[in-house]
Design a protein around this nucleic acid. Structure first.
Lengths: 154, 154
DNA sequence: CGGAGATAGTAAGAAAATCTGACTAAAAGA
DNA sequence: TCTTTTAGTCAGATTTTCTTACTATCTCCG
């Protein structure tokens, strides 16, 4: 470890690798011709499950108002990345779903992450990388558990 | 590890803990009466070194235009979190520096991070937590090295 | 020294993103 | 059925960010 990262707090230590991933994805998408996508749009892809999701649920899991999410989805829909199909279960709702073009974006993002992960693994070694990811998974579990049963509950 | 975090990509694994920290800081600041600060303002605090910094350098390290950074700094200055003093070395420039109030915010943020870190350490154990942070520091070093000498350079 | 070009910061205004409040249509429940 | 809740949209205000252009100062080089 060099002096660079000494004295930095956990917030920065998590922020910097996360932003490195965002930058990499953004750069790869630009190179592949999807220059109209910005990190703001990524949250839609990140929170969109396989079979699609309703706007309200998307807004909920991304922690924004449904109007703001609608704004993003409208853009992505206009550009052909997602489509809105009727929800068979609920005539009020529509499902937001990736199009073929949207799946292509998802695939590029996955490759970008995988590439960066490989570069990191090369520096850290397989073992440390595996331990690192296992720890992250454990933390995510704790955090998501907390958010379902907010703290202080006793 | 539960099913929650299975199958998630590295991007999400880093994003979720990072956002947990941001949320916690935001919540603590609100409780302590600094409700006018949003995560957008945090980047100023995050990138502001001890003795202050020039606007351009701030904008640079936060990766935004200087106009956008000026917008944030103006707000923080109006609210009394930072002040702008002349730069003795350069009459064009001014140094942005934390005020007493700004240092109070910084201190609350540090405590919030430390608290969350302690909660996580309790779950992971001291050893795993230490290894985790060491890995993060190593990654930050790699990333910052990359950003100085961009990749592809042979 | 003195001029050319680079740099720090600001100004003005357009464009993008986000929020609030009000609304329609459909669903859920009593 | 009647009431209440929920999904999503509409309209408009506000906030945030960007583009272009500008002034003042600095740096470099002759």
């Amino acid at each position: 470890m060099s002096d660079e990262a000494r004295g930095r707090m956990l917030g920065a230590l998590l922020r910097i690798p996360f932003q490195a991933i965002v930058r990499r994805i953004h750069a790869e998408l630009r190179e592949e011709g999807f220059a109209d996508l910005t990190p703001a749009h990524f949250v839609v892809f990140q929170h969109l499950p396989e079979g699609g999701a309703r706007l309200t649920d998307l807004a909920d899991s991304a922690q924004m108002t449904k109007q703001s999410m609608a704004y993003l989805v409208d853009f992505l829909s206009t550009k052909g990345y997602v489509e809105r199909i009727p929800d068979a279960k609920d005539a009020r709702a529509r499902l937001v779903r990736l199009t073929e073009k949207g799946r292509e974006v998802e695939s590029i993002a996955r490759r970008a992450i995988a590439a960066l992960r490989a570069e990191w693994a090369e520096v850290l070694g397989r073992e440390q990388m595996a331990a690192f990811e296992a720890t992250l998974r454990a933390l995510v579990d704790v955090i998501e558990g907390e958010r379902e049963r907010p703290r202080g509950g006793g």
